[in-house]
Nucleic acid binder design. Structure first.
Lengths: 180, 180
DNA sequence: TCGGCCCTATATAGGACCGATATATATAGG
DNA sequence: CCTATATATATCGGTCCTATATAGGGCCGA
């Protein structure tokens, strides 16, 4: 990967100060969550390394009833490191789908189960489209382009599913068809 | 993940005997390569574990000039284990794109570099579409559905890129626009 | 009102997995 | 002729995710 967790964190911090918790929220709920991620297990160690390297500074805000909040800020050095990282070619997009892998074994699956898989997928896609649509606020050109990209992909899937679902389920259950 | 490397290997082996090398080729070049993967570093240990568990058997074919080829066959127990695995809900599809992440920082990128990123992406998508189209042989309903799914997604991206590219590059370089 | 669950918040240990490397040779291409 | 690629297995180092630990706050339903 061209960008390891450290660089991804720097990217988020280039938008403004944040705690490890808030960075993770960006990766699990924010716009970026649709195409990048990082877990607590890698973010916290990454932030410590970034401290050692002088790419971020940290201010501890005492809190009652929960661990102190450690708010990180990117330094000029950190900003430079991130800019350098962006000059490297991004690694290839990666799409992983157990759903599609399952479908390669459609012959072995009960038609009802197959239908369930497709229905769940459809629901998931609809939910994602709603999520993307909700994100309307004032967007930068980059954010707007990315939003449109996501919508284009998911709407194409939605269309494909609604168009091909019935035919697929019928054609992949030849035994049942003959028996009926 | 609902399916670990062991189960993915069992899936491939359910289509016929194969060596570790051949299984990996399926994950790196076959139809499945577009949405699942596994490396040598995980496949070889996985096959050893599957041996211990009695899910596969192994026949060694002596070869000259290269390591003996170890051809694995799935056992009835293995087949059962795979069928059981398919009953668990597939984990959510995962799309990871450093390309889109880069675009969130489009303000910080030179317009020429931005154009280069988009051009490379377009070329990559075109190549993928060609690859999918080539795969024409006699396909099972499942394979055909998956192929159509892939085409639908990639053609939607192609269309979006060609439609929005120029506008995006112009709008994301306001400084340059003002200067020009 | 009380219990359970989720949210905030940091942190680590264990394990899964990838990428690079080692090894050895045949074949194809320039 | 030399290099690159393909065949074929295997391991090591390192990165990263998952699950868990800790701890108190607020919120919702019974």
């Amino acid at each position: 990967m061209a960008l390891d967790v450290k660089m991804k964190c720097l990217g988020i911090l280039s938008w403004g100060d944040a705690s490890g918790y808030e960075i993770q929220k960006e990766f699990s709920e924010g716009t970026a969550s649709h195409f990048v991620d990082a877990s607590f297990g890698s973010i916290y160690p990454a932030l410590n390394k970034l401290m050692d390297e002088g790419h971020v500074t940290c201010k501890t805000h005492a809190q009652e009833g929960r661990p102190d909040k450690k708010v990180y800020s990117i330094t000029p050095t950190g900003r430079l490191a991130f800019q350098q990282a962006l000059k490297r070619a991004p690694s290839d997009d990666k799409f992983r789908s157990e759903f599609l892998f399952y479908l390669l074994f459609a012959d072995d699956l009960a038609p009802e189960y197959l239908a369930e898989l497709l229905d769940r997928k459809t629901a998931e896609i609809d939910a994602t489209i709603d999520l993307i649509r909700e994100n309307e606020g004032p967007l930068s050109p980059g954010q707007e382009f990315v939003r449109g990209y996501g919508l284009a992909v998911h709407e194409a899937i939605k269309k494909y599913l609604s168009k091909e679902k019935a035919r697929f389920i019928k054609s992949s259950a030849p035994d049942t068809a003959k028996a009926g």
